[in-house]
Amino acid sequence: MSNAFSESERNAVYRAIATRRDVRRGYTAQPLPDELLERLLSAAHSAPSVGLMQPSRFIVVRDPAVREVVHGIFSKANTAAAATYSGEQRQHYSDLKLEGIREAPQNLCVVCDANSERGHKLGRQTMPETSLYSTVCAIQNLWLAARAEGVGVGWVSIIDPERLQELLGIPQHLVIVAYLCIGYVDHFAAEPDLERHGWETRTQLRSVISYDRYSDACSGADCS
Results as ranks from 00 to 15, higher is better:
Ser2Met: 14
Ser2Phe: 10
Asn3Leu: 11
Ala4Leu: 12
Ala4Asp: 07
Ala4Trp: 08
Ser6Arg: 15
Ser6Asp: 08
Glu9Tyr: 03
Ala12Asn: 06
Val13Phe: 03
Ile17Asn: 04
Ile17Phe: 13
Ala18Glu: 09
Ala18Ser: 09
Arg20Gly: 07
Asp22Ile: 07
Arg25Ser: 09
Ala29Gly: 10
Ala29Trp: 08
Ala29Lys: 15
Asp34Gly: 06
Glu35Leu: 05
Glu35Ile: 05
Leu37Thr: 05
Leu41Val: 08
His45Asp: 12
Ser46Phe: 08
Ser46Trp: 10
Ala47Glu: 03
Ala47Cys: 04
Met53Gly: 06
Met53Trp: 06
Met53Asn: 11
Met53Ser: 12
Gln54His: 11
Pro55Tyr: 00
Phe58Gln: 02
Ile59Val: 14
Ile59Ser: 09
Val60Glu: 13
Val60Thr: 15
Val60Lys: 12
Arg62Glu: 15
Asp63His: 13
Pro64Glu: 03
Val66Ser: 08
Arg67Cys: 07
His71Leu: 09
Gly72Tyr: 02
Gly72Phe: 00
Phe74Met: 06
Phe74Val: 09
Ala77Pro: 06
Ala80Leu: 15
Ala81Glu: 15
Ala82Arg: 09
Ala83Leu: 08
Gly87Arg: 04
Glu88Val: 13
Glu88Gly: 09
Gln89Arg: 13
Arg90Thr: 08
Arg90His: 08
Gln91Asn: 09
Lys97Ser: 10
Pro105Lys: 10
Pro105Thr: 12
Gln106Phe: 02
Gln106Trp: 00
Gln106Glu: 15
Leu108Arg: 02
Cys109Phe: 07
Cys112Leu: 01
Asp113Ile: 01
Ala114Arg: 01
Arg124Glu: 04
Gln125Thr: 15
Gln125Asn: 14
Thr126Leu: 13
Met127Gly: 04
Met127Asn: 11
Met127His: 14
Pro128Trp: 02
Ser134Asp: 02
Cys137Lys: 03
Cys137Asp: 03
Ala138Asp: 01
Ile139Lys: 00
Leu144Cys: 06
Ala145Val: 08
Ala145Phe: 08
Ala146Asp: 02
Gly150Leu: 09
Gly150Lys: 04
Trp155Glu: 06
Val156Trp: 00
Val156Met: 02
Ile159Trp: 02
Pro161Tyr: 10
Pro161Gln: 11
Arg163Cys: 05
Arg163Glu: 14
Leu167Thr: 04
Leu168Glu: 04
Leu168Arg: 10
Pro171Arg: 01
Pro171Tyr: 00
His173Asp: 14
Leu174Arg: 03
Ile176Asp: 06
Val177Ile: 14
Leu180His: 00
Cys181Ser: 14
Cys181Lys: 04
Ile182Ala: 01
Tyr184Thr: 04
Val185Gly: 01
Ala189Glu: 11
Glu191Pro: 00
Pro192Gly: 10
Glu195Cys: 11
Trp199Ala: 12
Glu200Asn: 11
Arg202His: 11
Thr203Arg: 14
Gln204Glu: 13
Arg206Met: 11
Val208Met: 12
Ser210Trp: 00
Ser210Gln: 00
Arg213Leu: 12
Arg213Phe: 09
Arg213Asn: 12
Ala217His: 10
Ala217Met: 13
Cys218Ser: 13
Ser219Ala: 15
Gly220Val: 07
Ala221Pro: 00
Asp222Ala: 12
